[in-house]
């Protein structure tokens, strides 16, 4: 019995010390250093409506990391499909507390095929001139997080004329905005070319305001 109690004492004290070091001291250290060194990133990478960095949620119009729901606003670029609507909501609905994820339809799920067919029909109606089979795959599929802030450059290009028409901006102007917010591969190898939908739309809103 005695050796067991001795072991138990070691087990309990090691657990408590580890909890204090790994569970309290370590996260406090990372958070403290993160807040000092990279305070904008550590607090959610918030952006104002003019596209400037801010740490004040009251002045922010979004986060540089998180996409937003622009469906139903033809003057803006649309992002990818999100089951939870990117956690955006009208005031009267009330928030959902920032949940992430998607519906996770399997490849043979009929709900997936139906959803894509419906979205393709809608897209072809609202984007005259686009042919079936030309729509880039990322645009009308759901992202894993439901918060994907990017679309492929092809998915942006295919929307240019419709966005220009609805916003009253010249197509050249819209292309220029898209180009400004297109990110390339890191070191020319890693990652993929992508367009930041929210940053584009903030610029489109600004350009519309100037007209």
């Amino acid at each position: 019995m005695k050796p067991f109690l001795k072991c138990l004492r070691s087990a309990i004290s090691v657990s408590l010390v580890m909890m204090a070091v790994c569970g309290l001291a370590y996260p406090a250290l990372v958070t403290g250093m993160g807040q000092v060194l990279f305070s904008w990133q550590a607090n959610g990478s918030l952006l104002t409506a003019r596209g400037e960095r801010t740490e004040d949620p009251g002045r922010a119009a979004g986060s540089a990391l998180v996409g937003q729901d622009f469906s139903g606003n033809p003057m803006y670029l649309r992002g990818r499909i999100s089951e939870g609507g990117y956690d955006t909501y009208a005031k009267e609905e009330g928030g959902r507390g920032g949940s992430t994820g998607s519906a996770n339809y399997g490849p043979t799920d009929e709900r997936l095929t139906r959803r894509v067919e419906r979205d393709v029909e809608e897209f072809l109606r609202s984007h005259p001139g686009v042919e079936r089979g030309d729509i880039p795959a990322d645009l009308l599929t759901a992202s894993g997080s439901g918060l994907d802030p990017h679309i492929s450059p092809e998915a942006a290009e295919i929307q240019v004329s419709a966005v220009a028409q609805a916003s009253g901006l010249a197509e050249e102007r819209v292309r220029e905005i898209i180009e400004r917010h297109t990110e390339g591969k890191v070191l020319g190898v890693f990652g993929h070319g992508r367009v930041h939908v929210l940053k584009c739309n903030l610029d489109i809103a600004k350009a519309m305001g100037e007209m």
Partner: peptide
């Protein structure tokens, strides 16, 4: 962990924030 914060991963003891978007809706950021 610090490299991840540099890349944009949040690290704060504060709670979720709510922002007002340009389309007039609201968004919760966890």
């Amino acid at each position: 962990g610090l490299a991840l914060v540099w890349q944009g991963v949040p690290c704060t003891f504060g709670g979720n924030v709510t922002v007002e978007t340009v389309t007039g809706s609201f968004q919760d950021i966890a």
